[in-house]
Amino acid sequence: MSRRLPEVGGVYIQMEDELASLVVVIGASQAGAKAMTATSGPGFSLMMEQLGLAIMTETPCVLVNVMRGGPSTGQPTKASQGDVMQAKWGAHGDYEIIALAPSSPQEFFDYTIEAFNLSETYRVPVIVLADERVAHMREKVVIPPEDEIKVVSRKKPSVPPEEYLPYGSEELIPPMACLGEGYRVHITGLTHNEKGYPDMSGDVHSKLIWRICNKIRSNAEKIWRYKVIGSERPEATIVVYGSAYRSAIRAFKEARREGLSVALLKIETVWPFPEKPLLDLSETSKGFIVVEMNTGQILREVQRVAGSSRVEFVSQLGGDLPDPRGILTKIRRVLDHA
């Protein structure tokens, strides 16, 4: 990107650290640019404070996190999916976030564009939650012609500058004037009123926080991306996201070859978590097999949503993709108990 961006009219800045990187991204976005940064492991932890600032100031931006083994320095250059809950809860305070998990270089490309579109639509930082396996994977990528790529930009105020209140809109997602466009703009991480000025009163805080949560929650069905592959009324369903999908789809194909009644739910937006397909599948599925490269993070979401269903877990730690044979064993276990 450092080489390519200047060639296409973009700007690439090497900052001194992760904190500064995300702060500069926020500033660039507030000045009207589309901006992103990328990191891995401890760098993501370092960015949590600035992530909170982007959420609170409702600044559209994209953050790529290539998950590796942690905590701390952990396993640089090895894969994990250990930051899924951090992506959701890593900054302090209440908020909602959007995170997309690619399983191939093609999806990495497509989801990064989608991440920008979602961030501009909902005025929220969007995380591309990748992992080392997909980041070090080389594969065919089809780049469509520029005019075929859907590009969404933030909604601008329709009122003249003298009538503009940065957060005065009754809409869940306020139109956004950028610095230098002639509008009065005040940006702060403090709880703020409709003018954008600090206001510590309880009702202002409550209204602000519910709005930044509800703009995602009430639009969750529009944001969700997922695919259900396989039987319409499966007895067992694999739940997977990110590069672990590449193992799960192999296990799924093997299971189908054996004549097993199995489906695969590929989650593409891990946040907000797509509850509906899981609820639908839990009507027929005797159980779920959750596959993750961690000790059980989306597992908790599945248990929360699928309630009384049997939930088996395939955990892969250490840096490799899960072994498809281990997934197949768990599929058989769910079906044997059906």
Partner: peptide, 23 residues
């Protein structure tokens, strides 16, 4: 490896995946 995969995908229109391992 890169050239082999590139030849397969771009010019022979097949699919190829190359994994690089570090460590």
């Amino acid at each position: 490896g890169y050239i082999l995969g590139y030849a397969a995908t771009i010019y022979d229109r097949k699919n190829a995946v190359q994994m690089e391992s570090y460590g």
